[in-house]
């Protein structure tokens, strides 16, 4: 199971990297979103996929599953959600003000 997930993470990272390297701004932002999904899966896999029971000390007997990665992912998801939302707004404003969503044209000139 772990190997399968690792392959999936690899695929997601590939897709994300490809999107980030493109010139279109929206694709870049989608790329960052895909990358963050990949890393969330990585954290989950690193903690060990489901091996034991729910970690409720008085109600079940061990071995317990490590619950910490899920707490970490939850935090990371919220953060990446906020960042992506902010990025989308920023991209929209940049498009409106600069009149382009092509990163090649947003490079900035030295003679400004």
């Amino acid at each position: 199971m772990e190997s399968l997930i690792m392959i999936l993470i690899g695929v997601l990272v590939t897709v994300g990297t490809y999107l980030i390297l493109s010139r279109n701004l929206i694709r870049v932002i989608l790329g960052t979103a895909v990358l963050s999904h990949a890393v969330h899966l990585l954290i989950l896999t690193m903690g060990g996929l489901k091996k034991g029971v729910v970690p409720l000390l008085s109600q079940s007997e061990g071995p317990f599953t490590d619950a910490l990665p899920q707490a970490l992912i939850l935090t990371a998801i919220v953060i990446s959600f906020a960042t992506t939302a902010f990025l989308l707004v920023l991209a929209y404003r940049t498009y409106k003000t600069n009149g382009s969503d092509d990163l090649q044209e947003l490079r900035g000139m030295s003679d400004e």
């Binding site: 990358l35 969330h40 990585l42 954290i43 991209a91 947003l106």
Partner: peptide, 30 residues
């Protein structure tokens, strides 16, 4: 105009850096 253009790059660089921070954390925790 210039501010929005530069801030976009700043945000993107930092998003990728934070992503790498999470990868490092995942391997460290593992």
């Amino acid at each position: 105009k210039k501010q929005l253009r530069e801030s976009l790059k700043y945000v993107l660089i930092n998003v990728v850096a934070s992503w790498m921070f999470l990868i490092a954390l995942a391997f460290l925790y593992g």
